[in-house]
């Protein structure tokens, strides 16, 4: 689950996620790639971090940095973690590449008190215009793949994601959208955010 989605907003994404995390908490990064986020959180927030990563290269790179990372798959391996094992479970730019995003989110909700998800917004106006005017599957800066070789099999819009959270009983504690490399906080994901966000970062918790 390496972050090979052609995203060059990756760094901003990591910083935004880091801002959401309380110091000295227990964090699981699902699809942790080379461990960039975990390393950032370790140095900035002194967290106790764990990672799950599909690629051997990513696992090796992470382990070499002294991070505790297991080779595994978001779709199949989260079920092995006990309930409430972590303060935060993070899925950074990975949900669109999972086979069953709903099941993955449900597992994350079970094992983490908070869930953080960042993803590219397929509702962005550029994406819409590309499809409208060219009649071809959009390839954008955030989504630089042809339809036939993309790992992004479950793309969604900000509104789509918000409604799935609602269905799963996940409350939106905080939401940030990234437009042209600038991040802004939104109080409620509405049509405006859905149109202008390149990427979105959601901090979620169980509504009890």
């Amino acid at each position: 689950m390496s972050n090979g989605y052609g995203l060059d907003t990756g760094r901003i994404d990591l910083d935004l996620i880091a801002q959401m995390i309380a110091p000295e908490s227990r964090v699981l990064d699902v699809g942790c790639g080379d461990g960039d986020l975990l390393a950032l959180l370790r140095s900035q927030k002194d967290i106790d971090g764990r990672g799950v990563e599909l690629s051997q290269e990513g696992v090796n790179a992470s382990v070499a940095r002294g991070l505790a990372v297991v080779q595994g798959d978001a779709d199949t391996d989260l079920s092995n973690y006990p309930d409430d094992a972590f303060d935060y479970v993070i899925l950074s730019q990975t949900i669109q590449a999972t086979r069953n995003p709903k099941a993955v989110l449900r597992e994350m909700k079970r094992i983490g008190r908070h869930v953080i998800v960042s993803f590219p917004n397929f509702g962005n106006w550029r994406v819409r215009l590309k499809l409208l005017f060219t009649g071809r599957m959009p390839e954008t800066r955030s989504l630089g793949y042809s339809w036939y070789d993309t790992p992004n099999i479950h793309l969604c819009t900000v509104l789509d994601f918000a409604s799935l959270c609602d269905e799963l009983g996940l409350e939106i504690e905080d939401a940030l959208i990234v437009t042209r490399n600038k991040a802004r906080r939104i109080s409620n994901p509405g049509i405006f955010a859905n149109l202008f966000a390149n990427d979105a970062v959601f901090l979620l918790s169980r509504n009890t």
Partner: peptide, 11 residues
């Protein structure tokens, strides 16, 4: 993992 141990795993 079940006891939150510090574990890495590679295949």
């Amino acid at each position: 993992n079940a006891v939150a141990a510090n574990v890495s795993f590679v295949e």
